[in-house]
Design a protein around this nucleic acid. Structure first.
Lengths: 234, 234
DNA sequence: CGCAAAGTTGAAGAACCTCAACAGAGGTGG
DNA sequence: CCACCTCTGTTGAGGTTCTTCAACTTTGCG
């Protein structure tokens, strides 16, 4: 098992230029865990004692507002770090990562982080880049929320999911994990009703093809045109 | 001048546990620059060759959408790093920081960053925390945009500005840099009209007191109640 | 086969934006 | 020093987008 992990971990950009000895030391301290669909890796507000890496599967990180409304903060893809609350100077987890597909995660106790960084400044730089990219994504999303109408926001969200989790198939690109209208709504800050209406409209124009917890993009170009605001009719 | 800077820089959390020798080496490589109101430190899209630290004043970081709409991504307060695009793995600046008040910034060429991190892993950790906090703020903002109505969003934004730039005065807390309704609108994703209407309503209830590019919070408690969604009447 | 979860669709209403016209503040030059 | 002009803010009316409410259909699992 350790061997499989090693080649898998080795292939991640995060650990790109880490020497073998360090990598082994790191893996020696790691634990593995399987997470089944619908299960949470940890809960929002829980004390943060570990940080995580998604090896396989897909997680959606949700936050619940004091009023009980839920939103999806981001989607975790294989190779992504998550739950590194400690590194962000807080001692509880800000969100709840829920498995959208069968997943496998690795985790380390928080103390390990300091050691790693000390012995491997390169990793710290990589980690920072990762967080930085996440910050950029967040800003992009804020800008979209501010300036774009729902249809364009949804189009953007679908395009992003396609890039990150798309899988080529006969008649289009399939998003390869279960994704409900509710999920898309929580990703874009709208309601499942509006999403459903949009998908219906798009489907009748041949741009996408929906199904229960499924989504297939048939005409990427036209979807992009819509995301850019070109009111594509016909 | 170098002495003034040193004690000023020393007091920032970012450089908290840096030894004097390192700090001096750092300052030796830094440049200083004054920025007058309305002036941009650099422009969105420009090649990122330096990273910055705000010593004094206040900056608003704006982004312009392809359609020409402008939003304020964040406000930079004294002691904040900004323009560290390089660390985030991109070679152009994602936004334009404009001085909202007379400001003084320090800056370093990008190459310095690598050196610093190498000799001072602690600083890397601190920097990561800073970025992490920023990420959290961004997520908070996204959540607010998704779930809250305009009035609550504006209330939240004002409260945050108050925390970060508030200054106690006789009859309330004054936000100590010029802030137009337009600015608040761009911070909260609405229009200056809506902000103006809200401020008028609040003023008639004695919660705030407005003025040209000025804002004074008179009743923090009631503003907080509104931000939390308690429909405060009277 | 039935039940729960997911999705569809229509109608009504609200929140907010857009358009528009005006009022005050404050700097500038004659 | 006053008149003017621009920038900022105020307020009203109307319109649009999206949410909310509601009823119904479909899908797939136990």
């Amino acid at each position: 098992m350790a061997d499989i992990d090693r080649s898998l971990v080795r292939s991640l950009p995060l650990f790109a230029n880490m020497v073998d000895a360090e990598l082994d030391r790191l893996l020696a301290r790691a634990s593995m865990r399987r997470v089944t669909i619908g299960e949470a890796v940890f809960e929002q507000g829980q004390k943060a004692s570990q940080f995580y890496l998604l090896l396989h599967g897909r997680l959606k990180v949700t936050q619940v507002t004091p009023e009980g409304q839920q939103i999806i903060v981001r989607v975790v893809h294989p190779g992504d770090l998550f739950g590194f609350a400690q590194a962000l100077q807080r001692d509880d987890y800000p969100g709840t990562p829920i498995a959208a597909a069968e997943s496998v995660v690795m985790c380390w106790p928080n103390e390990v982080w300091g050691d790693i960084v000390e012995h491997n400044p390169n990793l710290a730089v990589n980690a920072m880049r990762t967080i930085g990219q996440r910050l950029q994504e967040a800003h992009t999303r804020i800008r979209e929320m501010f300036t774009e109408e729902v249809e364009r926001r949804v189009a953007h969200a679908v395009l992003r999911l396609m890039e990150q989790a798309g899988h080529r198939e006969e008649d289009g690109i399939h998003i390869d994990f279960p994704l409900s209208r509710q999920d898309v709504a929580e990703l874009t800050g709208t309601t499942l009703h509006t999403v459903s209406r949009l998908f219906s409209a798009w489907e009748s124009r041949g741009i996408v093809k929906g199904g229960r917890q499924k989504l297939l993009v048939r005409d990427k170009a036209r979807l992009e045109a819509m995301a850019e605001g070109n009111a594509a009719d016909t």
